[in-house]
Design a protein around this nucleic acid. Structure first.
Length: 211
DNA sequence: GGCCAGGTGTAAA
DNA sequence: TTTACACATGGC
């Protein structure tokens, strides 16, 4: 159970069902990083509004975020909620990037994950999202949907690190595979595996322990 | 109106 | 180590 073959079969099933996801939806690496912070515990549709606002003010840039006033940032990102916290998180991210000599230099640093985790407001999921989707290094991103799906389908009640190791140890360390797999799990989660599940047409229904 | 969303930090048991 | 709570807006 949860063998390499099983995990790959599930991947193929989801890919057949939902198609390629082409994550992360962003026009630049910095936009990706901003989105990673803004999406914390919030619908992606809310994040899109905030990103649009930031774009309209030409603020998708570390220097602009650094020089902008907190109120200005907060006004733009209000739709994502938690806007006071998140405005400060964006500032800290921008400052860290500038201190490291820009976006590319930042993403090339050794121990990028650890450096990101040292920024207050960036936790494991946000850090791993940036490592995978901006730096394009093969770490598997775990989110609430993934934990819920693995619990329901395999009765695996694991926390972040354990689940991450499970995927990383059993799957080939392939950046595109990791990107798409995570995106597909989120897609499955949104459609069928919310807190109140919608199992009737779930593509994993047949192998799910629940049903 | 109530529940939930692509988390994180902090404090208390 | 685990659990509880604050943070806040928008869709259904």
């Amino acid at each position: 159970m949860t063998s390499t073959e099983e995990l790959l079969r599930i991947f193929e099933t989801l890919k057949y069902e939902f198609g390629k996801q082409y994550w992360w939806p962003a026009e630049s690496k910095f936009e990706m990083m901003v989105g990673a912070i803004l999406t914390q515990n919030v619908n992606w549709s809310n994040v899109e509004k905030a990103i649009d606002n930031l774009k309209n003010e030409d603020m998708i840039d570390p220097s602009k975020i650094k020089s902008a006033g907190l109120k200005e940032i907060q006004g733009a990102i209000k739709p994502t909620g938690f806007y006071k916290q998140k405005s400060r998180r964006l500032k800290r991210l921008a400052n860290a990037i500038l201190d490291n000599g820009g976006i590319e230099n930042t993403l090339d640093r050794d121990d990028l994950r650890g450096r990101l985790l040292n920024i207050k407001g960036i936790g494991p999921e946000t850090a791993d999202s940036i490592v995978l989707y901006a730096a394009e290094k093969p770490v598997f991103v775990i989110d609430a949907y993934t934990q819920r799906i693995m619990k329901r389908v395999f009765s695996l009640n694991m926390r972040y690190k354990e689940l991450q190791e499970l995927f990383e140890n059993r799957l080939p360390k392939d950046v595109d595979l990791f990107k798409e797999y995570h995106a597909l799990l989120v897609e499955l989660g949104k459609k069928y595996c919310k807190k109140s599940p919608n199992c009737s047409y779930c593509p994993l229904k047949d192998r799910c322990e629940r049903s």
